[in-house]
Amino acid sequence: MRTHAPGWRARYDQWFTAPQTVVVQPTTWCNLDCRYCYLPFRKLKRQMPAAVAAALAASVAQLTASGSPTIGLVWHGGEPLAVGPQKFTRLLAPFEDLRRAGCIRHYVQTNATLITDTWCELLAAHDISVGVSIDGPATMNALRVDLRSKPAFDRVLRGTQRLRAHGVPFSVISVVTTASITRPEELLEFLAELGCHSAGFNIEEIEGVNAGRQVPTSEQAEEFWRRTLTWSRSHHDRLEVRELDRLGEYLHLIRTGQRAEWDERRHDPIPTVSVTGDVVLLSPELADTAEAAYDDFRAGNILHHPLDEILGHAHRLRYVRDFLTGLDRCQAECPFFDFCRGAQAANRYFENGSLQSTETNHCRVSRQALITALSNLATKEKERTS
């Protein structure tokens, strides 16, 4: 009897869930010029019109009305606070009923240099979860500079201090470079003292226009994670580490007989809405990327088609199909797939030049090295106690 491989729609549904996160780009512009930044248009002062925000709010309302869980709106940039408090308040206005009803939650990822008392009051009034981008103490943060190449560290620090003074909690994302990957304890201690409740570590990647810098190796990453694991075991009450928490959740589910819950988890399509209303799927880093073969990764425009319609046709997009092909290959070939769940789309594209490809350096340094570090630590502890 002849059997048929599942169609593209079935394959998409196998791998993807309804969106839990929507990334929103209120502006392309950034007041910093970080040396590793991947954004091609960060020096252009484009801003999202109110009509785009209103159309997105209507789309999100449709998604939540159909039974989707609370959706996180992540305001990203550029530097999202560069639009100013008044403009930002106008962009938030169409979502206010949804927020009050518990259908959405706002997040903002900021370099914190523009935070004022007014911003703190706005963030608190709209219950916005704040993520701050800072790479550690001044020497580790040296690549985060302004448009005149002046260090931004003192301004970032003042922003975090103002958040703390107003009682606004915040998390941190740190880019780990070749200059900081050998100093995890110094980085962790700094972040613990900074006052953030959690931190995530993005080991520097080849991505977007950041294509020429040397990035950390797998060996460096494994040592970084080993020492991070060791530090965290004694200091977890001081700082939660995003990657370790994910690993811990995975191991807990496996040990307690809940593997099915982990295996049934699917990818978030992460719709990213640009200042013009164009929607890109799979990875926010693909937004503003010119690629004729994929129509610049556009899945539609929110001004002309609602999100549920755009997502309903996602399986027809060539780049989504290529990504699904790569996911199938990851599952078949990679011994780390059980934890990793497949390479990130943007990393496949920018590192390998193909969304059908599998392993990337991001896989090796952010997933494989973490698992290997934990395994080697456990082996050494077993040898010591034997």
Rank of each mutant, 00 (worst) to 15 (best):
M1P: 11
A5N: 10
W8N: 07
Q25S: 04
T28V: 04
C30D: 01
P49N: 10
A54Y: 02
A55T: 09
L56E: 07
L56Y: 06
T70V: 09
T70L: 08
G77M: 04
K87W: 12
F88N: 05
T89L: 06
P94G: 13
A101S: 14
C103P: 00
H106G: 01
V108N: 01
C120G: 10
G131C: 11
G136S: 04
A138F: 03
A152Q: 10
F153L: 04
V156T: 15
R162W: 03
V172D: 02
I173A: 15
I173F: 10
T178F: 01
P184W: 08
A199N: 00
N202K: 04
G212I: 03
R226I: 02
T230A: 14
S232P: 00
S232N: 14
H235A: 06
H235R: 11
A260R: 15
I270Q: 08
P271T: 06
T272N: 03
T276V: 05
A293K: 14
A299I: 02
I310G: 02
I310L: 05
L311S: 01
L311M: 00
L327F: 05
A343W: 08
Q344L: 03
A346M: 00
N347E: 09
T358N: 09
E359V: 07
H362Q: 14
H362T: 07
C363S: 04
R367F: 12
R367L: 11
R367A: 15
Q368Y: 07
L374I: 01
N376R: 15
K382V: 12
S386V: 05
